[in-house]
Structure formats: C-alpha cells, structure tokens
Design a protein around this nucleic acid. Sequence first.
DNA 1: AGGTGTATGTCGCAT
DNA 2: ATGCGACGTACACCT
Lengths: 243, 243
Amino acid sequence: MRLVIARCSVDYEGRLTAHLPLATRLLMVKADGCVAVHADGGAYKPQMWMTAPNTLREEPGRWVIRNPNGEQLTITVDEVLSDVSHDIGVDPGLAKDGVEAHLQELLAADPTRILDGLVLVRREHPTDIGPVDLLCRDADGRAVVIEIERRGEVDRASRERAATSRWVAIEVKRKAGIDAVEQLSRYLERINRDPLTRPCRGMLVATSVAPQAVVLAESRGIACVTVDYDELRGLREPSLTLF
Amino acid sequence: MRLVIARCSVDYEGRLTAHLPLATRLLMVKADGCVAVHADGGAYKPQMWMTAPNTLREEPGRWVIRNPNGEQLTITVDEVLSDVSHDIGVDPGLAKDGVEAHLQELLAADPTRILDGLVLVRREHPTDIGPVDLLCRDADGRAVVIEIERRGEVDRASRERAATSRWVAIEVKRKAGIDAVEQLSRYLERINRDPLTRPCRGMLVATSVAPQAVVLAESRGIACVTVDYDELRGLREPSLTLF
DNA sequence: AGGTGTATGTCGCAT
DNA sequence: ATGCGACGTACACCT
C-alpha cells in the first residue's frame, strides 16, 4: 500500500464530472491498483476514487488513472509532502454474523415466532421476478404442506387444497422501509397470479419497521411483525408482551 | 490525519457482529475522529470503520472506539509498524456536475423536451409521502407527474473512444430501473387520491431506462422518455430522430 | 431525531 | 454481462 500526502487538485470524468480545488490530501494506492483521494474528514468515503481494474500513469506533477469503462481520474500534484509504501500482504478476510440470512434461517426453523400455527412450506420460494424469503401456510385449513412441482402436473386434490388454503408470503428484513413493502407487493402480485398459490397474503417481518412503511403496508393488507434477534437466537427469554 | 500500519485483529459489535483475524492493516484516523481499518485491496471501502462522532480510547495494545448508538469497534494491536500524523487542514470541498438535480433543472426550464406542449406547474411538488420531481400539465390541461432518474453508467461508445483515442470525450447515460417505476407509482397513487390533481398520469424520464423497467412501467400506463444530457445542456444539436 | 431519496454508491449472487 | 437485492450502506435534506 502506497500512502502519499500531497497538495493537489483532482478531476473526475465519467459517470459525472467532479472537481477538487488545490489542497492537501491523502492519496492511497492499494495493492489491487485502486486509488482513493481522502480529505481529513468526511467519514470513510474518499472524495474521489477509482476502483480496480485500472491503469495508473504517473507523469511529473500529474497522475492519470483510467478504467476500462472510460472513466478517468486526474490528480494534478503540486507538492509531495510524504510518499511511503508498506508491504501488507493479503488479508484473511472478514467474518460477519447477524445479517438478514441468519434472521431468515432462524425464522425458517420456527415460523411460529412470526404467527401462531404458521408452517413453513419453502424458503426462497421462486417467483418469476425473484425469490420470496419464506412461503408458509397458516393455522386454518388442513395441515398439508403442498409441494409445488415446477415441472409437470399437479394433481387435482393439491390444486383444490391450494385454492382453498391460505398462503402467506413472508419477507424478512432487519430494518424495513418502504422499499421492503414494495418488494413484497411485487412478489404478492406474482404469487396471486399463480392459481397454485392463490390466494396469498403477505407479512413483513423485521427487527424494526419504519412508521411510513407500516402505513403503506397496512393500506395494502400487509401485516408487519417485529422480532427480536437476540430472542430468536435464544440469547434472551421471550418478552412477556401483554396487551 | 493519523496513519498507522499495524498487525492487528479487529472486532465490531453493533448493527451486526464482525471479526477480522490478525493481519497487517492500515488504521486511518481523520481529524473529525472517524476511524477506518483498510486492507491492501478490496476497493476504497474499509473493512471496518466508525464514523464520527465517537470516542477513541487508546490503551496499550488496544483501541476501543465507541459511538453514541452503542456500537463499538475494538482494535487489538499486536505490533505497530508505522505511526505518522499529518497536518492537512480543512478541504475546500467538492464540486459536481451531472447529478440528478442538474437534469431536473434543465428539464424544469423546458419541459417540452419531455413532451410537446408540457407546462411546468411545480418542481419538487410535495405529497404526503415525499416530493415529486416535476408536476406538469399536458397540452390538454391534464396533470402529469414526472419522475427523473439518474443512475450512472458510461455508454459503450465512450468506452470504445476511451480505448482508441488519446482524447476522451465521455458520454454519460443515466439509467432508470424498476425502483424508479415503483417510486413513481407510489406518487401517482397518492396524487390520484387528491381531487385537485386527479386524474394524473406519470412519465419516467431518464437518459436510459432498463428493459424490465420499461415493461413494468408500460404495464402500469407509465410512459418512458429518454433524453440526452449533452443535448439538454446545449452542447449538442438535437438529434434528428426520424421514426 | 427520524424518514425519504440520492449515490461515480459498492458488493455478491444468480441467471 | 446483467439484473437484483443487501449493506453496519453513507449522506444530505426536510419535517
């Protein structure tokens, strides 16, 4: 990794046009070739950057970085105050816990956390516009899980069961906003066109839901449920919600 | 700005839990207090970070950074290879051209670029779920809501020019996707509840529109119009589109 | 403080 | 390659 402190002005031309007047900044060149121009503030995002792959041409007083998409970063270097390189080596990588996938796993393992009597039919149930997180059936009707054959015929009995049973499409989010409601609405529209899964209602499950999203959801007949992640993981006793 | 090269392991606890095993990395502390942990690759994004405001407590062999939301970054420092600080000062700031606001300005100044006879009623027309880019009336006096979408993408032609010529003229496409259609649909739903603006149709204006977005838009009676940014700015003569 | 929309978003996964 | 959704998205703007 190369770290240069320099007085410079910078220009970007590509998806938009941008200009940085002359000032002192940090120029960071990583081993993969990506370049970032940092001011001494403004969070972790650089003021300008060029991701790899790119080509850096270093002339006296000017760096020109180009990428295969025709974007270009031009750094006009007025004065170099420091220029050091460090041998860092590859990174072992990042481990994460608590992302949406884990929440979905936990809820798939026990859908009654969402609604009493709920039975999981399928995770990542595919529709022609993308997979819906969970497809379940509620407590009403016979507790027969219908396997949906995407190829071939479904027998008459299953078709009738499907037509009379109530399906629930569940979308799981950590923090749900309006876009989550939109996403679920799109899926519902599709699922309700399929005679096998019609009629189907939707539920939005999240660790928190934005108030406006609740309004939009309820206006579309979509129920919102909040769950506690620690509680789901068994790190905490279920809260005794009385109301 | 303080730049530390160190062998360290890092842990984040907050919105999720994450862990970085022991390795050599760059620790960047900016004047505003934000901290970033960079590997020598993987684009400009740090592997972990803590934005300002926060408090950094530096103990021997351990940095603990906390923010007011209760999130915590713990850097266990095994060995410091370099530790330098630079006085950089405030930055004069970044100037951008070609963002959505500019496209909106140009179209507001002359809505006939979108549709013949179109008259602007109001920019950023407020609804109870957010502002609509442009509210117009068509030649027949009916209301039209316009959603302007920009999403950067450099087109193929400039890519080829960039590859073959020394001088690079960049043409920028601004592409609308399904989310733009959803956004406009939401606004339309609201506006068509208001007797003053009903009936109202929608138009999606962008320098380009994704095929799926066109399909979804047309299925909802939303017309898609593409415009040329350079043409709007007057940098190019209107193309004589014959069809 | 909280919600909404923009971003050169970036990134990863599936088609 | 492209579409699509997640992200500790960050960030500005507005209420």
